[in-house]
Amino acid sequence: MDVIRIKDLAIFAHHGVYERETLTGQNFLVSATLSGDFFKAAKSDNIEKAVDYGKICHFMHAYLTSRTYKLLETATDNLSRELLLNFQQLQKVELEIKKPEAPIGLPFNYVSVSTVKERHQVYVSIGSNIGDKNKNLENGIEAINKLEGCKVLEVSSVFKSKPYGNVDQEDFLNGAFLMETIYSPQELLKVFKELELNAGKGHLTHWGPRTLDLDILFFDDQIYDSRDLQIPHVDMANRDFVLVPLAEIADFKRHPVTMKTVRQMLEELKASSPLYIIE
């Protein structure tokens, strides 16, 4: 990726815990490292295709002077997110806000808070076996596409499959899609859980019926483990109803641990296990 750096942009604003900071104000210094693909601008020498760093400086100035935050952490996190939302050419924002006049009472240079925000490409499995299944899938994808900071890029065909596990229930409709998001894995998981809950009944039984089921399969090439989320999805290599639609849009995608492609995982599963896909 190409990089633009803005160093120590001076901004007088009203952020801080103490009343004198929010009333009187003080100087802040903002530095940003902005990454993206600037190839078209470089080759064409056309300002219309370039990232306007002057506009970005004015945006950061306007953002920080029109708001008051107690914590630098909040100001830094919110501003970095807004830069990605408002400047689509940016893929990654590394932001640092310095506070050289912090009320510490001892000699120092500055206090600063830094954060990194970027766009992520995420592959997701989607399924439903309650009610109008096709409509549930469509509504789920539409809801994700409407979320700030999220964009659905590609959607697979819909496949019918037998239920996974030994729970007596209707057949599923399954698909997969690729999305772009500025959310972290845990933030995206929280959003998906809310969408599943809002969709209606289901999720009361392990491997049971679902109005809407959303599973994160890949998140860039990250390996992520927490109590409630593992990425890549730990059981995807055993699920043809995941791999079949995923292979339609990402047969080339390589598992960051096993280094097998989605197509390889699917072919190995077909050779070793009965399939759940029936259409």
Rank of each mutant, 00 (worst) to 15 (best):
A42I: 14
A42Y: 15
K43E: 11
K43H: 11
S44F: 09
N46D: 15
A50G: 10
G54W: 10
G54C: 14
K55M: 13
I56E: 01
C57T: 14
M60H: 02
T65L: 10
R67T: 07
Y69E: 01
K70G: 11
K70V: 13
L71N: 12
L71W: 09
L72K: 01
T74E: 03
T74F: 00
T74A: 04
A75E: 06
T76G: 04
N78M: 11
N78E: 13
L79F: 10
L83C: 05
L83Q: 02
L84A: 12
N86F: 08
F87C: 08
Q88A: 15
Q89F: 10
L90Q: 05
Q91G: 15
Q91P: 04
K92R: 12
E94P: 02
E94V: 10
E96M: 02
I97E: 01
K99F: 11
P100I: 06
A102E: 12
I104M: 06
I104K: 08
I104F: 09
L106Y: 13
L106Q: 11
L106I: 10
F108N: 05
N109Y: 00
N109S: 03
Y110S: 04
Y110K: 00
Y110Q: 02
V111K: 00
S114I: 11
S114T: 15
S114V: 10
T115G: 00
T115Y: 00
V116H: 14
V116Y: 14
K117E: 13
E118Y: 10
E118W: 10
R119Q: 15
Y123Q: 02
S125Y: 01
I126G: 02
I126D: 02
G127M: 01
G127S: 04
S128A: 07
G131F: 05
K133C: 05
K133H: 06
K133T: 04
K135C: 00
K135L: 07
N136G: 05
L137V: 14
E138A: 01
E138F: 05
N139I: 03
N139T: 07
N139V: 04
E142Y: 10
I144V: 15
I144Y: 09
N145H: 14
L147C: 13
L147M: 14
L147S: 14
E148W: 08
G149A: 01
C150H: 05
K151W: 08
E154P: 03
E154S: 07
S157W: 00
V158P: 02
V158T: 00
S161D: 00
S161H: 00
S161E: 00
K162V: 03
Y164I: 11
N166L: 12
V167P: 11
V167K: 12
V167Q: 15
V167L: 13
E170D: 09
D171E: 11
D171G: 05
L173K: 06
L173A: 05
A176S: 08
A176G: 06
F177C: 03
F177A: 03
F177N: 02
E180T: 07
